[in-house]
Every structure is written in C-alpha cells, then in structure tokens.
C-alpha cells in the first residue's frame, strides 16, 4: 500500500513498539471503564489477551492526528452529526416519508490508509450519506436523498479529515 510521508514514522515495522502502544491503550481503557477501581486480576489477562487479539487482527499501523486539527474537527463533527440525526429523524417520522435513495460513487482525494477509513466512518454519521464500499480509493455511497448537495459536502469533509490527519488531498 502506498503511504503518505507523515505515516512513515517510528511506529512502522517495529512490532514491539506497536504491541507496547496497544498494551498501554488497552490498560488505559480498562482503567477508565473501571474508573481506576482496580479489578486488575481480571484486567491484566483481559488487557494482554486484547493486545494479542488486536495484533492478530490488524498489524500495527501508524497514524497521527494534529492537535489543532482535532480541535477544529470536533465541533464540526458534532454539529454535522447533530444535523444528520435530526435530518434522518425528520424523514422517518414524516407522514410522507420524504426519501429518494440513490447509490453514488465518489473518488477519494485523501491518500490511501487510515484517513480514508476514517472518512468512510465519518460520513455514516453525517446527513444522508452511508458508505457502503471502499475499494482502492473509490467509495460507494448510499444516499438517503439523491437531491442533496453531496459533492461539495463530501469535499468539505475530506478537507476536514485531511486537516485532522495532516495529509495532502490529491488534485483531481
């Protein structure tokens, strides 16, 4: 897989480092879920098992978010997903069921890798879009309403995700 330059870092190829990152992450997850209350007799085996399982399912990949990108992304995402929830609720409850679904194809401008997957997941929570397949940079999207202005909207989301990951968008 081709990777953007920012994604090549100390993370890649170092299995031990990748395992350590996940071990710490799962330990934190346990600590938060148990509110630091312990239960480590179960927690330690669970964390170790989860680490092995996750490494077996997915090799360590490196990605990072830019702190400023995160700060810009969160309010945008919250607002858009609120819009998405209100939009679909309105359509579901409306007596006439105002939907006009269609399948559209979108060629991603984001580089291959985690940012594309993140983008596909993000648009599931935005108004009217559901990512149905992601294959070599081509995203198949189910639209709840074909009349929506989706092209510009998707481009904007891609810009936000690129800003979050600190990657460059391809030029068309």
């Amino acid at each position: 897989m081709r990777r953007g330059k920012r994604e090549i870092s100390i993370f890649s190829g170092k299995g031990l480092y990748g395992a350590l990152v996940r071990l710490v992450a799962f330990s934190l997850l346990w600590a938060v879920l148990t509110q630091g209350g312990g239960g480590w007799i179960i927690g330690v085996p669970a964390v170790v098992l989860a680490t092995f399982l996750s490494l077996g399912l997915h090799a360590p990949i490196s990605w990072r978010w830019r702190p400023m990108g995160v700060l810009r992304f969160i309010p945008y995402f919250l607002w858009q997903s609120l819009r998405g929830g209100i939009d679909v609720s309105r359509r579901a409850l409306h007596p006439k069921l105002p939907i006009d679904p269609a399948v559209v194809h979108h060629t991603l401008l984001l580089p291959p890798g985690p940012s594309q997957v993140f983008f596909a997941n993000t648009i599931n929570l935005l108004p009217g879009t559901l990512s149905a397949d992601l294959h070599e940079g081509h995203l198949t999207i189910h639209m709840l309403d074909a009349g929506l202005e989706y092209v510009m909207e998707l481009k904007r989301v891609e810009e936000r995700v690129a800003d979050l990951f600190g990657v460059e968008l391809k030029r068309r």
Binding site: G85, D87, G128
Partner: peptide
C-alpha cells in the same frame, strides 16, 4: 418504516448516535 436495509442503516446509525 424505511423500505430497505440501506435506508434502515441510515436511521439506526445517525439517530441513535445523537
């Protein structure tokens, strides 16, 4: 109420998320 699987997924993910 939605007519097919795809539309139903819209309802579930977006409404439940909010």
């Amino acid at each position: 109420r939605f007519p097919d699987l795809y539309c139903r997924l819209h309802a579930l993910t977006k409404a439940d998320n909010i």
